[in-house]
Design a protein around this nucleic acid. Sequence first.
DNA 1: GCCGTAGCTGGCACTGAGTGTCAACAATGG
DNA 2: CCATTGTTGACACTCAGTGCCAGCTACGGC
Lengths: 192, 192
Amino acid sequence: MAERKRQLVRDELGDAALRLLAKQGFEETTVDQLAAAAGVSRRTFFRYFASKEDVVISFLSLVGEQIVAEVEARPADEPPAIAIREAVKAITVEHFLENREKSVALIRHTQGVPALRARFAETQDLLRDDVAAALAHRAGDAEPTPRQQFAAGLGLMAFAGALTHWAAGEGREDPAVVLDAAFAEAGKAFAL
Amino acid sequence: MAERKRQLVRDELGDAALRLLAKQGFEETTVDQLAAAAGVSRRTFFRYFASKEDVVISFLSLVGEQIVAEVEARPADEPPAIAIREAVKAITVEHFLENREKSVALIRHTQGVPALRARFAETQDLLRDDVAAALAHRAGDAEPTPRQQFAAGLGLMAFAGALTHWAAGEGREDPAVVLDAAFAEAGKAFAL
DNA sequence: GCCGTAGCTGGCACTGAGTGTCAACAATGG
DNA sequence: CCATTGTTGACACTCAGTGCCAGCTACGGC
């Protein structure tokens, strides 16, 4: 129950921060202001978020964990491309359709602010390892093969591309359709 | 000629920095120490490198520029996968074979230090846009298509994978062979 | 109800990255 | 010999992130 309270505080803190960031811009806002906006000290802010970027990015990396779990749960004989596509589809639809406006704003910020874009690239890079490991584990291998790593990376690129496209259209399109299109294009990337 | 001198100073500075970083580790070394090792002030260091990570990464992003130029120079009817592969091969062989030890150390550091790995992911992300633009320009398009973006991304992933593999083997293998293998695997990433 | 203890909080001080500003000091050209 | 331009070092400053400690709360045992 202490765990639950901690999560509650964290949500509260994150909401206040996102509101302020949306109003002032990321680079123009200091951590002191974020803490003040939520009514806590700067020190406490850093007990809930490892960095200023973390407030924005943690949302994405939460999605990441669930994608990994979903990939792992997919049938072992399914091709990697399909497994990732369906995993991403399941999680995305669930997460992004509920609070569309917030998601669109979040994605836009992540694309537009250099520091956030960098952090996004970083987390995606780390996530790639985890997805590749999930693919390997699902197939009964101990170590991911290069091909599984490339599949994971390409799948996440398709995911990111779909997110960008979806956010550019204000989130009006059906995520499943956008994702299918992105994965189809990604699959033809190296077509001769 | 002022330009040339500036480049000279920059090289000198970079060399001294890399030597110290290799000895002490990246996180354990402050910018003050890097500056002192080269005999300049901290302020001057930042006139030549935008950040501490930049000393290590700028080498990679220099390679990036040349890859873009090489892609652009490739025949327009060549498939993207081949164009990127050959472009990367040409640049890589030229750059990494000459000073093998330095390259291996650089790659190892980039993989091992979280901050550098993050920066690498970031620059690769930016480079992807440039490579995609080069592909588009070469094909006569104004804007890169999603497929070209995925091709650029997958090509750079293959590049990075090949670098890792090559550095893991102390740089004893033939880069061209390693790259060909990586691109072959990458091409099968989404095979069904 | 009393008390130790465990977790959370705020305040403080500190390190280290990165930036703006300015004065001193070449080097260069007329 | 002088003016101009560019480079450098020094200083001060902001801000992110961390370590440390003292105070406060809540909770279970007695």
